[in-house]
């Protein structure tokens, strides 16, 4: 299971950007951003420019917008970010399918998406299908939460996290990766870091 950082509740743009840069450096899988329609994709673009590897999950509340508009913005983001876009689509099943089919290269209602995205297939996930949890910051209980999601078959989990991202990456992203994480490694890494903190 891979962990992504949900930044949608972080109010300040510069804080979101700072957290995304740290998450990128620490190897987290993705950040999740949202916002008022039209600003979510520009937010993701700003993060894309300041990061190198992290995936950019963008929550689109499609509302009255045309699915083609959303697909076009995802395609442009995918080129600007060099294949790191991921669309979380909040809309009817029909709308989600419309966006997904356009991004997959299908001609929908006589329209082909131009340009196509950089990825062979941009992941398009319905907003109500993503797994997310607010982690407490208490490592003991958060380990159990992570274990429960991982062992329950979750593959990608978005989290909010109240402490340093290093703790999240060291103790929980590692633990999420597989069922046999040797906890002693993370604990000893904390000890090694202690004199420097």
């Amino acid at each position: 299971m891979r962990l992504g950082l949900d930044l949608r509740a972080v109010a300040d743009h510069s804080t979101r950007l700072d957290l995304a840069v740290k998450a990128d450096r620490l190897g987290l899988w993705a950040v999740l951003v949202g916002g008022t329609a039209g600003t979510e994709v520009t937010e993701a673009t700003a993060i894309a420019i300041s990061t190198d590897h992290i995936h950019l999950a963008v929550h689109f509340d499609v509302g009255p917008d045309h699915p083609l508009t959303v697909a076009e913005e995802v395609a442009v983001l995918d080129h600007l970010s060099q294949r790191r876009a991921l669309a979380i689509v909040d809309g009817s099943a029909e709308v989600v399918t419309h966006v997904d089919r356009l991004l997959a290269g299908n001609i929908v209602d006589g329209v082909a998406l131009a340009p196509p995205p950089a990825q062979t297939r941009v992941p398009v996930w319905p907003a109500d299908a993503i797994e997310r949890v607010d982690l407490s910051g208490d490592l003991e209980s958060d380990r159990q939460t992570i274990d429960t999601y991982r062992d329950g078959g979750c593959t990608h989990l978005f989290v909010t996290w109240p402490h340093s991202l290093l703790k999240l990456a060291r103790h929980l992203a590692t633990r999420a990766a597989g069922p046999d994480f040797p906890q002693i490694v993370a604990d000893l890494a904390d000890v090694v870091d202690e004199p420097r903190e």
């Binding site: 994709v41 993701a44 673009t45 700003a46 076009e72 442009v76 600007l80 340009p115």
Partner: peptide, 9 residues
């Protein structure tokens, strides 16, 4: 087709 993200870049 999407100038706002391009401009943001």
């Amino acid at each position: 087709p999407a100038l706002l993200p391009a401009a943001a870049g």
